[in-house]
Design a protein around this nucleic acid. Sequence first.
DNA 1: CGATATCTTGAGGAATCTCAATACTAGTGG
DNA 2: CCACTAGTATTGAGATTCCTCAAGATATCG
Lengths: 244, 244
Amino acid sequence: MPPFDMGRTAKQSVADIHPCGACPVRSLTVCAALEEDELSRLADIVQTMRVESHHTIFSEAEPATAMFNVTAGTVKLYKLLPDGRRQITGFLFSGDFIGLAVNDKFAYTAEAVVASSLCRFPRRQMDALMEEFPKLQRRLFSMASNELAAAQDQMLLLGRKTAKEKIASFLLSLSQRAVRRGQKDNPVLVPMSRADIADYLGLTTETVSRTFTQLKSSGVIRLMEGGKVQINDKDGLYDIAEGT
Amino acid sequence: MPPFDMGRTAKQSVADIHPCGACPVRSLTVCAALEEDELSRLADIVQTMRVESHHTIFSEAEPATAMFNVTAGTVKLYKLLPDGRRQITGFLFSGDFIGLAVNDKFAYTAEAVVASSLCRFPRRQMDALMEEFPKLQRRLFSMASNELAAAQDQMLLLGRKTAKEKIASFLLSLSQRAVRRGQKDNPVLVPMSRADIADYLGLTTETVSRTFTQLKSSGVIRLMEGGKVQINDKDGLYDIAEGT
DNA sequence: CGATATCTTGAGGAATCTCAATACTAGTGG
DNA sequence: CCACTAGTATTGAGATTCCTCAAGATATCG
């Protein structure tokens, strides 16, 4: 398999649709903007889909005909340089939203890290709903603002942090996001490969691996099986992340 | 004379000279969302201000009580690590908008690179106007989406590009943004210091300087006085920027 | 026209990358 | 159930880019 497998096209299935009103991640996402009765309007246009691990959900420069909401699993977003160098711009977990587009095109590729489920909202209909429910628009704006703040944190990380600081920041960020989703934050689940982590942090897989080993040796973390990482010293890890 | 001084006396405010309806950067910014008659509502709440070079407009973690629009000059946004390492997350020129906040706090510091003019919109009143004019909200959302796309490009640059590619990308981006503002794109004006460029690209001033020299020696650019850079070979520079 | 900041250039060093070998892990078929 | 395979992770050694420290050149400003 080539180094950067672009993945295969996701096959969409109209799978088991739990009604939006009973959606377990509703409070985390766009849908939280609407009341029970309005929610049915969203439910009318939503399609649920399941993507297998390593399958592409959509590709960079493709017409952005839909927005998505991750309901289970993990998704990565990335951009490529012509020679294949890759930058992962974000990892998405249940409750996270994908699909902000510029010029009606996606600015990145979205690919499942593990088998995942998503809600798919056709853009045209979503636009109409936003027209009808300004609070939906507000919600999206507020989510975009949060994403922007996260992007700026990531720029600080990429531009100015050392490998050790990057890994520490990454683990803490995963842990904090798990809390927000109401999942276990320690040990924290790290479902992505070393290569993905490297492409997210601007490192190589070897450096990621070495840095994990280093943090393990110094006792702040413990590498567990199943891609879990135990944080032994949260404050210590935080100090490392901030370079203090 | 500062690069962007349009020849007015410093004490005069922009609004005195041209009401919003005659604002030269209106089409570029939030204000483009509103019609002539609605614009007066914006004009009612706007304050114009002038900041001298190196002066801070607002600081990270400060309550975000206002949004701003740059009408002249250059502004930089940055974040700091505890030990003083700095990441500039963006440079703003006339027409650019500042002020997306998270948790009602600014996520970064804004500082004038050269003497600059801004329109200041109190957030509370702006929120009310957004309520009243959904198209204002839409406009802000679309601007946030564009910023997000730019942020992702910057992540690719920071995480995966070499120094040479970073400088080439930076020059091209400045040039393209000048076009959008209707200004001369070649030679392109580079009003910020080497240190600022370094903190924007995740490099040191020395590396920035050396890389400029290198690009100059290879003939793709020419360093001119007044902080201007002539792009001799746009295609060549583009190829360098993309690593091809 | 000097003072001060900024920019450029040089030499050496350090963090990270590249290339390469080995160890581990998970899934597959016998 | 176990050996086999292919992918993934770890570790090592050397190369390279970029950084650090230092000096000199240039620009800017009062």
